[in-house]
Design a protein around this nucleic acid. Structure first.
Lengths: 201, 201
DNA sequence: ACCGTTTCTAGAGTATCACTCTAGAGTAAT
DNA sequence: ATTACTCTAGAGTGATACTCTAGAAACGGT
């Protein structure tokens, strides 16, 4: 049993994916969800508000996938590899959602949505830090801020993901996983740990 | 002396920056450019067409800035550093344009615009390859495809640029230049070249 | 069971906006 | 002067996001 509200959100995702943000009309969304005009505007004050809610919901699912990738048992290289694979895997296997998150929705959010986004970002950062901080302390990962670390892991992969999501490039971004991991490991893993995986200084 | 067409493009950029893509009305753009409705649709068949033209024009300026950053005289590390600095510098000093390119303009372009975009991308890649290929051949840069190389240079920087452009983060992305360069150098420059800058194998 | 309150559904109505259409002004070549 | 073309002008049109009013369903207290 799904609620009308959930139906509308799902319909929104489907229609946004099919028609893009501008192309998607409220009429198309509510007919796809079999909801009346009144219902639509009862649950969401505007098309933008539905879009914002959808954005935060999908962002949460994406973050959950990333958080699930690492735990305390991972060493530096393994963690880096898992984070990158998790990102690529989520984008490919949740193409619609990823397309919405990274291609379609593009900013212009209300302050409320922006605040929630910041909060979710912090929670993600916090989670990853629980794994990363000890490795930095032990000298296995090079010292850098959380955001710089993220930029090294996600940034390059994202170039390929965006190209794939927009249809500009047809190749599955997962094909780049190994080379992206190799580069990221050089960028953020202490070189001692690269040369000989057993001996600290 | 500016033409009505140029005025409309400039007005478009200004209004898109102020009001976002949806918020920007044709009326606002043409009144900002003091052009009549007839004029607007004489030059551009639609609001989207103006947006597409603007996109390609700004993409060209961005690429020109990147291409100007490297020449044959740069060694591996110097070239990497210059590319990253050029990207950060262009984004900050052309905030409006960068915001349009990376935040506002949605990907829903016509096939014509997409084709032109691909062509411009190739020309950029080609230019950078003229500098990069010899360094790869000499073993100063690690071997990887052009796109992977790009992803290492631009990807991480772009995380900071987007956060800044969207207003999510207030800090000037140029503050991250040194750490981003250091990471990128580890990622793409051959480690021989890092340890001792004079001796090949 | 009954009433009151809130939540949700319904769809006709409205304002706005992208875009069309018709007409005319400016300009240049012949 | 005539013709042809480019550009300007603004009234008109259709689509669409959103409003408004009213009623149906669900829920809660007595």
């Amino acid at each position: 049993m799904t609620t009308a509200r959930e139906d509308l959100l799902a319909a929104g995702l489907a229609v946004f994916d099919r028609d893009g943000f501008e192309g998607a009309t409220v009429a198309a969304i509510r007919s796809h969800a079999r909801a009346s005009n009144g219902s639509f505007f009862h649950f969401f004050g505007s098309k933008k508000e539905l879009a914002g809610t959808l954005f935060l919901e999908i962002l949460g699912r994406y973050h959950a996938a990333i958080i699930a990738a690492v735990d305390e048992s991972c060493d530096a290289r393994e963690g880096v590899a898992r984070l990158i694979r998790a990102h690529l895997e989520w984008v490919v296997s949740s193409r619609r959602e990823a397309r919405y998150l990274f291609e379609i929705s593009r900013s212009e959010w209300t302050e409320e949505v922006r605040g929630a986004q910041r909060a979710q970002n912090s929670r993600l950062a916090e989670s990853v830090e629980r794994w990363r901080a000890p490795l930095v302390a032990r000298g296995e990962l090079l010292p850098m801020t959380s955001l710089v670390f993220f930029s090294q892991i996600i940034g390059p992969a994202q170039i390929f993901c965006r190209a794939w999501l927009s249809g500009r490039d047809r190749a599955d971004p997962r094909e780049q996983a190994e080379i992206l991991i190799a580069c990221a490991v050089r960028a953020v893993v202490a070189s001692d740990a690269i040369q000989k995986p057993g001996e600290p200084a």
